[in-house]
Nucleic acid binder design. Sequence first.
DNA 1: CAGTCCGTTTAGAATTCTCTAAACGCTGGC
DNA 2: GCCAGCGTTTAGAGAATTCTAAACGGACTG
Lengths: 180, 180
Amino acid sequence: MTSTLNSRSWTTERRRFVEAGGNTTYACGLGRMVGRVFALLYLTPEPLALEQIAESLAVSKASASIVVRQLAALHAIRRVWVPGDRRDFYEAETDFGVIFRDGLMPGVRKKLQSARAQIERMMEAEAASDVLEVSLSAAPDEATLTREQRAELRRRLKNARSLHSRIDRVLGSKLLSRFL
Amino acid sequence: MTSTLNSRSWTTERRRFVEAGGNTTYACGLGRMVGRVFALLYLTPEPLALEQIAESLAVSKASASIVVRQLAALHAIRRVWVPGDRRDFYEAETDFGVIFRDGLMPGVRKKLQSARAQIERMMEAEAASDVLEVSLSAAPDEATLTREQRAELRRRLKNARSLHSRIDRVLGSKLLSRFL
DNA sequence: CAGTCCGTTTAGAATTCTCTAAACGCTGGC
DNA sequence: GCCAGCGTTTAGAGAATTCTAAACGGACTG
């Protein structure tokens, strides 16, 4: 016993849903295709082959292939094996906790750590320039800071570093991934 | 009494810091310029005029003007008035809590709400297609779902809606903005 | 009231990103 | 071993974004 889903509204909403998924990932700096493919698979309870994905979204298999790989790396979709079919099938990961924890977080935290390292290099550079204090200002257009301004700069850098620490800590906590 | 900051390392690190800021905002879907300008102002304790910003980053005043407006809309920088100078000066907002709460959150929550609305339209469409159940499947290539698959689809949609609710709730909570 | 100095707007250039078509390599079946 | 089907790679077309230069409008000044 099967039921057909072919009312106009369903088809329309499906397209809009897929597009909304694309916009979401685009706003996050990932491509539009990433969200579209995920949304499509999320709406499709059974696994889809690469070509079905490409056809559904009216894109080339090449595009679909690349996007599918990104999504798999993000743990957002799984490659599943269908007996008797040589093609690769894909299905959405429905546990968002897994996607966040295993797929998104590692990359985010790596970026965060790199930013924090940059802040610390900046602090070192600021401190090192201390020894050259009141050196003859050879370059007239160089930035010249008062003592208070340098103190303010140090304050800002410390504050930024502290923020990064707090964010990194909360992203690492199990509380968050349990929440999703 | 002033101290000069002109060691090679400081200049280098400053450029890298600015570039890192650009990469961060780019990864978040905002342009690179947004982060570069903010990073520059964050490293500069005194207010900068538009042209100084443009010159520092080697971009046109037009670009700087547009970016500066975006940043002001995000509450990430403030326009300040310098007595005796007709130009507009800008300084970084150093309280990240303000930036998140007043600048970023409203936009994020609006996007979230729009996504949630799309999910709900999808649920309605799915439910509405019920009445057409077992309609003669005029289009042979239409998706046909078993009863279990439709149940799974409903489960997924409810799950996605629930996730959006939870995220929206935590973003709205004062706990978060107090944390930053 | 003319001249200058700002910031903004806008049309178009330039760059970057994205997608595609075609060729390729691999695997399994005959 | 050869053919067919599948996914991937890649060079280049195409599209979208980003940046700029130039013109504009408003505001202060002499």
